[in-house]
Simulated assay, not measured.
Amino acid sequence: MSKTAAPAPALRTALTRQNATSLYEQIAARLMEEMEAGLYEPTGRLPSEAEIGERFGVSRVTVRLALDKLVQEGAVVRKQGKGSFVAGRQMRHGLDTLRSFHESLKLQGLRATMQLLEKKVVTLPDDMRQRFAPAVRGLFVQRLHFVDGEPIALGESHLPYRLNDLSWAEVEQQPAYSLLADKMGEGPARADIAIGALAADERLAGALQVAAGSALLLMRRTSYFGSGACCDHTHFYIRPERYEFVMSSTFRPA
Rank of each mutant, 00 (worst) to 15 (best):
Q18N: 14
V58I: 03
R242F: 10
V58D: 00
L217E: 03
Q26K: 11
L116D: 04
Q108G: 02
L218G: 12
A20D: 00
E150F: 09
A87W: 04
Q26I: 08
L218M: 09
A10L: 10
M1Y: 09
L166M: 08
E156C: 09
R60Q: 15
S48F: 06
P9Q: 10
G149S: 06
G109C: 06
C230H: 04
G185R: 01
T222V: 11
L154V: 07
G196C: 06
L39F: 12
T234I: 01
I152N: 00
A153S: 08
A169M: 04
L65C: 14
K106I: 09
R89L: 15
A50E: 10
E51K: 05
R17W: 04
E54C: 09
E186Q: 10
V121L: 00
D182Q: 15
E103Y: 09
L67E: 03
V122R: 06
Y224Q: 06
F56R: 09
A211S: 07
Q115F: 12
T21P: 13
G138Y: 02
R221T: 03
T62E: 02
T222M: 07
R17C: 11
A194W: 07
Q174C: 14
H235L: 08
L116W: 07
V63L: 02
T62F: 01
E170I: 06
E170L: 06
M247R: 15
L208E: 09
V136P: 00
Q90H: 05
H102Y: 08
G187D: 03
V86C: 06
T16W: 13
E202F: 05
S100G: 12
G228D: 13
M32K: 15
Q209P: 11
Q130I: 10
A254W: 06
E33Q: 11
R30L: 15
G88H: 00
L216D: 08
G187Y: 01
R137Y: 14
E172N: 05
S214C: 09
F146L: 03
Y177I: 03
G138Q: 02
L144C: 11
G74D: 01
R92E: 09
G88W: 04
M35P: 08
A215W: 13
L117F: 12
A191R: 04
T113H: 07
R203V: 06
Y224D: 04
A112W: 09
S59F: 07
K119C: 05
L117D: 05
I238M: 00
G187Q: 04
V77T: 09
T234G: 01
E170M: 08
C230D: 03
Q174A: 13
R137G: 14
P160N: 12
L110K: 08
F251G: 12
G109S: 08
M91D: 11
L70P: 03
E186H: 08
V71M: 15
A176I: 05
I193A: 11
L166C: 15
L218S: 05
G149F: 07
R55D: 11
R190P: 05
P9E: 10
A87N: 06
G206L: 04
A211I: 03
L218C: 07
E73S: 08
L218I: 11
G94M: 08
G206I: 00
E172C: 00
Y40R: 04
A205Y: 02
A176W: 03
W168P: 04
Y40V: 02
L208Y: 03
L217H: 14
M35G: 12
L70K: 01
D127M: 00
F146Y: 06
S104Y: 00
S157P: 02
H145W: 10
Q90I: 11
